[in-house]
């Protein structure tokens, strides 16, 4: 902890420090539960610290803002060494649902909301949410397929414009 940006007012109580990062742009590119949550937690955390946040969903990340998909995201049990189960077992029917159920229970205990609620929270806390045009075209989606919190479908170029002076975080 450094004291540098602690401003001391006439009364000798310091103000809450404002973070040196002012703005973040978070790209969410994966569509598994474990692929989506980190980006959401970082976006929400940014807003809680008074940092501006933009969320950009691309590729399979679009599942997290697609109305008929976002409530059914799953944990990947195959090709995920951190699950510590053999690949063959991970591929058995029901394995992914089982792991997903477990993870959801744990998250509820930690006050981490389901995806739809979380997207709503992040939007209401003032972050902007966008879908990637190239991916939307590729999957044959339209704006109507997305949850209402999605501001717009934008190009990568416009994403970079919006990210002026922001730290870009790819997840």
């Amino acid at each position: 902890m450094n004291n540098q940006d602690t401003q001391t007012l006439p009364s000798d109580i310091p103000q809450i420090k404002s973070p040196t990062i002012k703005k973040v742009s978070i790209v969410i590119s994966r569509g598994s539960l474990d692929g989506v949550y980190p980006g959401l937690i970082m976006a929400n955390g940014a807003r809680m610290e008074g940092i501006e946040a933009t969320l950009f969903f691309t590729f399979f990340g679009l599942e997290a803002i697609t109305n008929n998909k976002m409530d059914d995201l799953k944990v990947a049990t195959v090709g995920n060494p951190a699950m510590h189960i053999p690949t063959l077992l991970g591929g058995l029917p029901g394995m992914s649902s089982f792991a997903t159920r477990k993870m959801k229970q744990q998250m509820e205990e930690l006050d981490i909301p389901p995806i739809r609620e979380f997207i709503g929270m992040i939007h209401d806390s003032g972050a902007d949410i966008y879908a990637c045009k190239a991916s939307v075209d590729m999957f044959g989606l339209t704006k109507e397929d997305f949850c209402p919190q999605v501001e717009d479908i934008i190009s990568v170029g416009y994403f970079y414009e919006l990210s002026e002076n922001a730290q870009i975080i790819f997840t």
């Binding site: 809450i16 404002s18 929400n44 807003r47 809680m48 610290e49 008074g50 006050d111 909301p113 929270m121 209401d124 806390s125 003032g126």
Partner: peptide
């Protein structure tokens, strides 16, 4: 947490950010 705060108080997140700007 912000989620528990909004749940327990019944105050929507948007309003919480208006009442206590920037966090």
């Amino acid at each position: 947490s912000i989620r528990r705060l909004t749940k327990e108080s019944g105050v929507p997140i948007k309003e919480l950010y208006q009442l206590f700007p920037k966090g």
